[in-house]
Amino acid sequence: MQNMNLYSRGDKFFVKINMVLVALFTISTLYPFIYIAAMSFSSGFAATSGKVVLTPIQSTLAAYNVVLAEPEFWRSYLNTFIYTIGGTIMSLLIVIPGAYALSRPQLLGRRFWNLLVAFTMWFNAGMIPFWLNMRDLGLLDSYFGIIIAFAVNAFNIILLRNFFESIPSSFEEAARMDGANEFQILWKVYMPLSKAAIATITLFCVVARWNGFFWAMILLSDESKIPLQVYLRHTIQRLSDDEEFTTTLITAPYSVETVTAAIIICSIIPVLLFYPFIQKYFNKGILLGGVKE
């Protein structure tokens, strides 16, 4: 089937047109990143006067110098790492044992517990009660609040539970007869057997944490605790309002656009570095969770 020589002339034409279209879509996906990168290395004047299209104009590191000189930038970068690593570990600590327990046939009230988890995918109290609850729990403006409050989601638990359920029970029974207790069965048998699924939810967690913005913006008012995404948002807002930035000087080494672009590039880099790992697993992961028979 993959042999081009077997294709008719019409088919060859069809395949070529298709290839061009896919290439166009791919380029248009990639282009904004190239554009932003070019912008971040351009001079403020070139950016403001709309000269940047594909490559940096009047190359300069001025925007980066502005961004990297801000201690708040570094602070927020560090915070993002704290939230990402702490949050992911917290997620795994709750989700893995929970999913395992929910997959055990001997668990009393198994249907009830599963429903309790699944129901939250269908019905959510919404933004305001959640926020009030966070306030009542004293978790506003707290690192721990951000780390714990978003540690679990029903989808990840169910995804992993389904995976655990698909492991033949004889593995568990063999381990049980060998004298393993539940913790040992989970740690020494189920977790090694579920590497792909666990990697998948880990990646989901990491990406969600790294990108988490809305709740961090709402729950954190202390500037020293905000993550990168919120810092980025604040900076864009601040620069747009700033007198100095809105006047267009021909000599301006940087502008709102170049500084914004520089922060964007800085916060994308870790995602790009992490991306190859993500790629390896998300194909499997999305299918694992997608549709349960």
């Binding site: 033949p168 004889s170 593995f171 040992q184 590497k195």
Partner: peptide, 27 residues
């Protein structure tokens, strides 16, 4: 008692020696 399962239930992440040692290590 020890049991031999229909699908063997050998742990794929462990080698033969480790598979055989599993129960002894646990004990």
């Amino acid at each position: 008692v020890a049991m031999v399962f229909q699908n063997y239930a050998l742990y794929p992440h462990l080698n033969v020696a480790e598979n055989m040692a599993f129960g002894l290590r646990i004990r």
